[in-house]
Structure formats: structure tokens, C-alpha cells
């Protein structure tokens, strides 16, 4: 098993939501041999590698995951929750979760049998979809309102290159950053690298704003995931699994960076695909570009299926393409040197 795959599995298993520290601790464990790491109180990880000049490239991958938060506990051990991030309510019946109470408690979303409901369940409000803690009245002793609830799923390979699991949005990109740090461990990069594993992306691109303000980089490249092809999905809305790094083009992105990435992919024969957006990208790139006096920003994405479920699926070959592309981008001195 490659380092990249091993790291991805470890990062997928870890939980990074609310005040749960697992993902941050796992990431620091993986990055600290190669970079100076610091974790802030909102669970952002900064990992820095000093370069040969004083320019700084910020490479962002958000560390948080879609999750839930407990708002009520009833006498029989059933929880009501709110969503933290965009959840597909249709995917929740019978879904295993972990409640991060006084200890980690395995639990499951209720599924009302069809003969007891009028047709399909209503997916109007997450508050109607209760969680069964299997604990009955004991639940109140170990769970409090405000506790985090995360998906509970072990990552598994579907094929030699494809992996399914929870939180691959955006641990796939975190794994790429770890691999990049590894590749530059024996040499000084031409510029300072600041890997930012940002918090609260799923709540509205929040963590990156303060993180980038602190780093004050000269430019930023955001790594995230984007929609991959699948049954019922218009080809106009998605990239293709296994066809390489998705290089973003959008009015909010710095075109020089997009073009440089494209040229490098062509020169080095790295599989890539162009993802065109007509404005907001829905990623941290939208936020980081507006930090301080403005930061020129690029976006590279990994195609991913079943986004925001616990069966998110990626192809390792795409992770490798993104990694190769960013490595060349760093070696070339970023987006502004010809």
C-alpha cells in the first residue's frame, strides 16, 4: 500500500468536527516529520516549510467534515440533531453515526418502517429524523446537547485505485498535502510553503479567513474535491473519475495561476481536466481571495462521488495527479514566475 493510500485511510477514519480533535491530531502526526506544525484553538493546523526566498505560497485543504450537533435528548435515548454542513437527509435513515459524548457512542439514524408512515418518509427537516443511541434512558447520562455527531464508516477499497469512506471531502486533499510535504522533506523549496488545514469550511468558508489573515501569503492554491461523473448526473455538472486533476477557471480565481497550472500539466504530461465555474467556486478559494488586501488564488480539485455522505469515493490516481501538479507548481516558483 502506498504512503498516500495509507495516509488517506487514516485521515478518513479520523473525525474532525466541532471540538473533536481526531483529524487534527492525525494530520499533525503525519505532517510533523516534514514541517513545523501548530494547531490553533479552532483546530486549524498550520504546517510550514521554509523556502529559498521570502515569498510564501499558502496551500489550503479544509480539515473539517460535514457533521451534526445534538439539540435534544429524550427519555428513551433518542436524539434530535441539527446539521453542520449540507447533508442529504434522504441518506440518513439507518445510517450509522458516532455520538461524541463523554465517550464515543455508536448510534444509528432511525428508519420508520413504510407501513407505519404514509409512503416515503418526509425529508423536510433533519429534526424529524431521530438518532437511536441504543442506550435508552442511560443516554442522558453520557450525552449532552451540543455534543458532536459524526458519520461512522470504515474506509474500504472498491478497486485497486478507488476508495470509499467518510470525509474524503476533504481528507483526500489533506493526504495530498502530506505527500507534498514528504516530497520536499529532503530539499528546500524555492519559496516558503504554508500548508493550512482549515476549520469550518462546511459551515461557510470560515476558518480560512482568519488562517489566511495570519499567514499573509503572496498567493494561495486551494485544494478541494469536486463532483465526479455518475448515473443521473449531467456531464455538464461534473468531472470524470480517474481522468486527473481538475484545474479551476472562474472569474474569482487568478487566471495566471489557472493558466500556469494548465501549462505545467501539459508540459509534464500530468492527467488534468478543466473545471469552469461562472463565479463562486463553493470552496475556500472564494474566501481566501478576499482576505486582507486580496490574495491571488488558484483552485485544484479531486473528482469525488457521493459528496457529503459516508460513501464518498475517490480514485487514488487523481490524488497523485494533483500531487504531481502542485509539486511542479512549487518547483516552478508559483504562479507569477515564468
Amino acid at each position: 500500500m502506498s504512503n498516500l493510500q495509507q495516509d488517506l485511510l487514516a485521515l478518513s477514519r479520523a473525525v474532525g468536527a466541532g471540538s473533536v480533535r481526531g483529524a487534527a491530531e492525525t494530520a499533525v502526526g503525519l505532517l510533523s516529520p516534514y514541517a513545523d506544525c501548530e494547531t490553533t484553538d479552532n483546530l486549524t493546523v498550520f504546517a510550514t516549510v521554509n523556502g529559498a526566498c521570502n515569498r510564501t505560497l499558502l496551500l489550503d485543504a479544509h480539515l473539517d467534515e460535514v457533521s451534526m450537533i445534538v439539540t435534544d435528548i429524550d427519555e428513551n435515548g433518542f436524539l434530535t440533531v441539527s446539521a453542520c454542513g449540507g447533508l442529504d437527509l434522504r441518506a440518513l435513515p439507518a445510517r450509522p453515526v458516532t455520538v461524541h459524548g463523554r465517550q464515543e457512542i455508536p448510534a444509528v439514524f432511525c428508519s420508520v418502517p413504510p407501513h407505519l408512515s404514509d409512503g416515503d418518509p418526509s425529508f423536510d427537516r433533519i429534526a424529524d429524523l431521530k438518532i437511536d443511541t441504543l442506550l435508552g434512558a442511560e443516554a442522558k447520562k453520557v450525552i449532552a446537547v451540543g455534543d458532536t455527531v459524526s458519520f461512522r464508516a470504515e474506509p474500504v477499497p472498491l478497486s485497486d485505485t478507488r476508495i470509499t469512506g467518510k470525509s474524503l471531502d476533504n481528507r483526500a486533499s489533506v493526504a495530498v498535502l502530506v505527500e507534498l510535504a514528504r516530497r520536499f522533506s529532503a530539499e528546500k523549496p524555492p519559496m516558503n510553503l504554508c500548508f493550512v488545514l482549515s476549520a469550518q469550511e462546511e459551515l461557510g468558508l470560515r476558518g480560512i479567513r482568519t488562517a489566511a489573515h495570519r499567514v499573509q501569503p503572496d498567493e494561495a492554491v486551494v485544494l478541494d474535491v469536486s463532483f465526479a461523473d455518475g448515473v443521473g448526473i449531467s456531464p455538464l455538472d461534473c468531472g470524470n473519475m480517474g481522468k486527473g486533476a481538475m484545474i479551476g477557471y472562474s472569474p474569482v480565481l487568478e487566471r495566471k495561476i489557472s493558466k500556469k497550472l494548465t501549462r505545467l500539466a501539459q508540459d509534464h504530461k500530468i492527467p488534468y481536466q478543466i473545471e469552469v465555474m461562472d463565479g463562486h467556486t463553493g470552496t475556500n478559494a472564494d474566501a481566501v481571495s478576499l482576505v486582507g488586501n486580496g490574495i491571488p488564488t488558484g483552485l485544484v480539485s479531486i473528482p469525488l462521488r457521493n459528496m457529503h455522505t459516508d460513501v464518498e469515493t475517490v480514485d487514488l490516481s487523481d490524488l497523485k495527479s494533483v500531487c504531481d501538479l502542485i509539486e511542479h507548481y512549487i518547483r516552478a516558483g508559483g504562479g507569477f514566475r515564468d
Partner: peptide, 26 residues
């Protein structure tokens, strides 16, 4: 259907599959 969408399956060979769907964003 509610317990099929985005759930995992296992075949006799021990390998896995996923009942996929359109992401909520789309």
C-alpha cells in the same frame, strides 16, 4: 429505498460496492 441510497453492499467475493447517487449539491 430509504435504506438503500448511499449504503454499502458486499459481494460473495468479499469485495464492496456503493449504491451511489447525485450529490445533494446538484
Amino acid at each position: 429505498t430509504p435504506v438503500l441510497l448511499f449504503h454499502r453492499v458486499r459481494f460473495a467475493g468479499g469485495f464492496y460496492g456503493v449504491i451511489g447517487g447525485k450529490p445533494i449539491h446538484l
